[in-house]
Write a protein that binds this DNA or RNA. Structure first.
Lengths: 362, 362
DNA sequence: TGTTAGCACTCCTAACATTTGAGTGCTAAC
DNA sequence: GTTAGCACTCAAATGTTAGGAGTGCTAACA
C-alpha cells in the first residue's frame, strides 16, 4: 500500500479532474483543459509541473510525446479506491428499472443480466448458484417402463432436476414405493455435498433387501442433481463493447465476444474471482486492466450475491478501462439489496419479483 | 426463370472462373487474371468484351470504375444453381467430423453447431425440435407438500419437462394415485397439440369426483410440456464472422453478433425458412444477400433435419456472400446422413436426463 | 519558494498533391 | 470473331505541408 503522503492534496485534485474528464471524453486531457475545468485557480504551467510529477509517480501516462495525459491502471485504481464519490443517498431518485416478475430462477438470472446490460451499456455476466450447496426437499422415483426409472429431485427454491435411470432388473410398484420412502426420509434437507460414501453405507444398512440397488440409485441421484451444466453462466450485452472504440477493433472485439460466446474463459474468471477472499464491505470489487491478464484493455466490476439457502453467485460487468465505475458500482449495490428483498418478500428465491433496479445518468 | 440461351457456354465458363476466383481471394477479379487462369485460350481483350456483356446481364458488377468484377447476387445464384459441382461421391474422403455420442438431445444439438462452426469456419445455428409435436410417454404427479404438486412429463426421446403446480385444496395420496392413472391412460401417446378442449371435456366426464381439478391440472400439464422456451435455438461460431473483412466492420459485425446473441431475429428467420415449402430434393437451401432482407451482406445455407418421432428442426450456416457454398453444402449433406445414423444406432435421440427448473404460478 | 508567462520544440492529424498500377473501353488491324 | 495497343479512370499508397494541441524549460515575479 502506498503511504498516505504519496500524493499532495492538490495532486489528488488534479488527478481527479484528469480521470473524470477522460471518463467523459475518452480523449487525452491536457494542462490547459485542467486549468480551466478545475476550481483550483492555477495556470496551465503549474498544472504541467504537477502532471509531470504525477507521471513520474505512475498515475498517468502520455500516449505520445505531445499529447495530453490519460490515467494509468494505477491511476484508475487510486480513483476507484480513494477519489470516487459514493453518493449512496441519491439512489432513490434514480429512474426505475423494472425486472419483471418471474417464477423461475434461471429466467430471473437471464433477466437480471439483460436489464443490467441495458442500463449500464456494458457487457454483463452472472453465474448461477452452484447446485451442490442447495438442499434437497423431495425425491421421487417412478417407473417409466420395465427397465427405465425416472428420478426427480426437488430442491430449495423449487429447483428441479431429473434423469432417467436405466435398470437391469425391474422393480415392482411396491419396491419403488419403499425406495421412495427410504430416499425421502434420508435425503431431505441434505445437499449434494452431504451425499457421500458414509451416507451411502449407512443407507445400505437400513435398506434391507434393497441394499444392492440403493448405491446405484444414490449415485444416479447425485448425478441427477449436479446435472452436467453445473455453474451455468448467463451473459448479455456482449455487443455493447462495440460502443467503445478502444475495444471494437477486430482483434479485441473478436476475443472478447468469443469469451462471452463460449463462456469457458468466463467460468475460469469467475472462479478466480470467487476464490479471491477479501473482506470487502459490500463484496464489490474492481479489476482494472492487467488485474485480469487475459483482458488487458478492460475493467471488470464484480459483486457477489447471496440469496440465502445456498443460492450464491457472482455478477460481473465488463467495460473499457474508462468505464463509469461510479455508476456501475452504484447499480450493483442497488441490485444486491434488491435481490435481498426478493428473498425476504417471498421466502424462496426464484418465486417472485424484483422491482426497481436503479439507473441513472451522469 | 431465365431461358436456357441467356448465357453462351463461354460466358458460363468465364462467370465460373470469376466466381471461383473471387471466392478464394475476396478481391475483384480482372480480365487479365481470367485470361491466364482459364483453360480457354483467350486474350484479356476478348474476356473484357464478354465481361462487359455479363455485367449488362446483371451477373457481375464493378465495385468502382477501374476495378475488376465481382459476382452479383444473381451471379452467385446462377453459380449455386447451375455451375457448382456436386461431387457427392467424394463425401467419404472428407475429413470426418465427429459428433460424440451423447444421450441428451439438448447437448447433442449444442455439439452439432459447435462442430459445424468449427469445420466450416462460419457462424452456425440449429433450432431444437418443437416439443409440441412430440408424444407423451409418461406423466407423473406427486405431492411435494400440502399445497404444491410436482408434475413431470416424459416424452419420446426421453425429453423431460416439469413444473410445480400450486393447489388450493390438498390431495390425499390416494387421490394422486388415481389422478396419475387417469392421466397416463388418457395422455400416453398424445402430443401437446392433441390436448385440446374436446379432450379435456371427455376426461372430465370420466373423472368422476376429480372433474373439478382435472381441467386445472391438464392445463398445467400442457404448460409444463411447452415450458417457456419453446423452439430454443443454439448457435456457435458467431465470432467467425470476424474472419471475413467484408463483415467485420463495427456496424455489420455488431448487428450480426447481436442477432446471434439474443436470437429473436434468428427465430423469425428460421420460422420463415421452415414455412418456405419447396420440394427441394435434400432440403438444403441457399439464401443469398437480399434473399434475407435483414442480412444483406450475408448468405445463409439451411438444411432441415428430421430424426423421426417428430424431432424436426433446421440447421443454418451463415457466412459472407462469398462463402464456400460447395463445401458447406457437402458438409450439411453429410451431417444429415450422420444424424440419421445416430437415431438408428441408439434407437432414441436423447436417452437420459434433461434438466429443468421448477416453475410456479404467479 | 511557489507560481506564472513566454517560447521553442515535438509530434499527431488532417488535408492536399502525387504517383502507381490494375483494370477498363475503344479502335484498328489481323 | 479475335487481338494488340493505347488512352483513360480511379482507388490506394505515398509524400508533403500546415496547423494545433501539448509539452518542458527558463526566467521573471510575488
Amino acid at each position: 500500500m502506498a503511504e498516505m503522503t504519496e500524493l499532495t492534496e492538490r495532486q489528488e485534485k488534479i488527478l481527479n479532474v484528469i480521470i473524470r474528464n477522460y471518463l467523459e471524453t475518452g480523449e487525452p486531457v491536457g494542462s490547459r483543459t485542467i486549468s480551466k475545468n478545475s476550481d483550483l485557480n492555477l495556470s496551465s504551467a503549474t498544472i504541467r509541473n504537477e502532471m509531470s510529477d504525477l507521471e513520474e509517480l505512475g498515475y498517468i501516462l502520455q500516449p505520445h510525446t505531445s499529447a495530453g495525459r490519460i490515467p494509468s491502471d494505477k491511476g484508475y485504481r487510486f480513483y476507484v479506491d480513494h477519489l470516487m464519490e459514493q453518493k449512496d443517498q441519491e439512489i432513490n431518485e434514480v429512474k426505475e428499472m423494472v425486472v419483471e416478475r418471474t417464477d423461475q430462477m434461471e429466467k430471473m438470472l437471464k433477466q437480471v443480466v439483460k436489464v443490467l446490460a441495458n442500463s449500464t451499456q456494458y457487457a454483463t455476466m452472472i453465474s448461477a448458484p452452484a447446485v451442490r450447496g442447495i438442499r434437497v426437499r423431495f425425491v421421487q422415483l417412478s417407473a417409466v417402463n420395465d427397465h427405465e426409472l425416472l428420478s426427480v429431485v426437488v430442491m430449495d427454491g423449487n429447483v428441479v432436476r431429473n434423469r432417467i435411470i436405466k435398470l437391469e432388473q425391474s422393480l415392482s410398484n411396491e419396491d419403488i414405493l419403499k425406495l421412495n420412502m427410504l430416499l425421502n426420509t434420508n435425503l431431505s434437507g441434505l445437499t449434494v455435498n452431504d451425499i457421500n460414501l458414509a451416507l451411502i453405507q449407512k443407507m445400505r444398512q437400513n435398506a434391507g433387501s434393497y441394499s444392492g440397488i440403493i448405491a446405484e440409485v444414490l449415485e444416479n441421484i447425485a448425478g441427477t442433481i449436479e446435472s452436467d451444466e453445473e455453474r451455468e453462466i448467463y451473459t448479455s450485452g456482449a455487443t455493447n463493447i462495440f460502443k467503445y472504440p478502444e475495444l471494437s477493433d477486430s482483434e479485441k472485439a473478436s476475443h472478447l465476444i468469443s469469451a462471452f460466446e463460449d463462456k469457458g474463459e468466463l467460468k475460469d474468471l469467475i472462479e478466480d474471482i470467487e476464490s479471491d477472499e477479501d473482506g470487502n464491505p459490500n463484496g464489490i470489487k474492481v479489476y482494472i486492466g492487467n488485474d485480469i491478464p487475459s483482458m488487458q484493455d478492460c475493467s471488470v466490476v464484480t459483486a457477489k450475491y447471496d440469496l440465502g439457502d445456498g443460492f450464491k453467485g457472482t455478477i460481473g460487468i465488463l467495460g473499457p478501462k474508462r468505464m463509469d465505475y461510479e455508476n456501475v458500482m452504484r447499480q450493483l449495490k442497488q441490485l444486491k439489496s434488491q435481490l435481498g428483498d426478493i428473498v425476504h418478500s417471498s421466502e424462496l428465491p426464484g418465486t417472485s419479483s424484483v422491482k426497481g433496479i436503479g439507473k441513472k445518468e451522469l
